[in-house]
Amino acid sequence: MKGIVAQNISRKFGRVEALRNVSFEVNQGELFGIIGPDGAGKTTLFRILTTLLLADSGAGEVDGFDIVKDFRKIRQRVGYMPGRFSLYQDLTVEENLKIFATVFNTTIEENYGLIRDIYEQIEPFKKRRAGALSGGMKQKLALCCALIHKPTVLFLDEPTTGVDPISRRDLWEMLVKLKKEQITILVSTPYMDEAGLCDRIALMQHGRLLKIETPAGLAKQFTDALWAVRSLSMSKLLTDLRRHPQVETCYAFGDAHHVTLKAGLLKPEELAAYLAGLGHSDIGVEPITATVEDCFMNLAANKIEL
C-alpha cells in the first residue's frame, strides 16, 4: 500500500488551470517534497489530497483510502498544516494544543513522545497567546498541533515560507526525525535548497509536475555541462558571459555564476582566457554538479519550449 497516490489530478478555477494531470506516488514512511514557486498549484494539490477540495478529474488515495469516498477516514488519520498560520491567535500556546488534542479525541499526554522535541522548544512560552509568537515559533506550534494525534500521513504546505534560515533548518531536522517514526510526509516549499533533505522530490510549475526524482538522481540527469564562474566584477561577468556565443544560459548563484554551454566543445581554460581578455581578474571556472535549482530552471525552460 502506498502512503499517497495521485492519478491524473486536474483542477480549474474559472479559466485558470491550477493543476494539469498531476500524478505521483509516495511510499509509506517517505519524505516527499513538492518544490515549486508561488502559483505552481501546490496548495490546490494539498487541498485536494486532504479532502478539502474536489478534483475536476483524476483520482487519489491516502493510506489506501479514496480521497472522495473515504474522506472521513482520511480526516481521522492525517495531519495537515496549511500554508498560512491557522491557529487561534487569541488562545495561548497551551490552549491551542489542548483544543486540537480534543478535536482528535486524544490528549497531549497520550502522544507526548512524538511532539516532545518540538514542544520543549516552545514550552517556555506556553502561556503566551499564539498571535504574539515569532514566525518560527508559530510554525513549531502548528506542527505540534498537526502531530498531536499521531497521524499516519502528514501534509505540510509551505511550512518554511517567511521563516528565517535557522528556524527552517530546525523544522527540516524535525521532519527527518518524524520520518523515522514511519510517518509519510508530503511537504511543499518554494525554497529549492531545502529539497536535498527529501527522499524524493517533485518539481512543479504552472500546475504541472516537471520531474519526480531523488535529489541525487536529479543532479545526475542534468547532462549539460555546468560550470561555476567567478571573477572580481560579478555583474560585468554576467553580461560578458551571456555575450559568449557558446554560452547557453547564465544565472547568478550566490558567489558564482552558473553557466551551461551549447555544445560541449569549449574548455574551461578557453572561457577563462576569453574573460581575461575582457579585463576580468581573479577568474575561476570549474565544472560542478547541478543543484536542484539548476535542474528546476533547466526543466522549466525545456517545458516552455514544448
Partner: peptide
Amino acid sequence: ELGTMEVLLVSPM
C-alpha cells in the same frame, strides 16, 4: 478567514 476552519475540516470532528 484565519484558516482554522481548514484545519478543523481535516479532522475527525
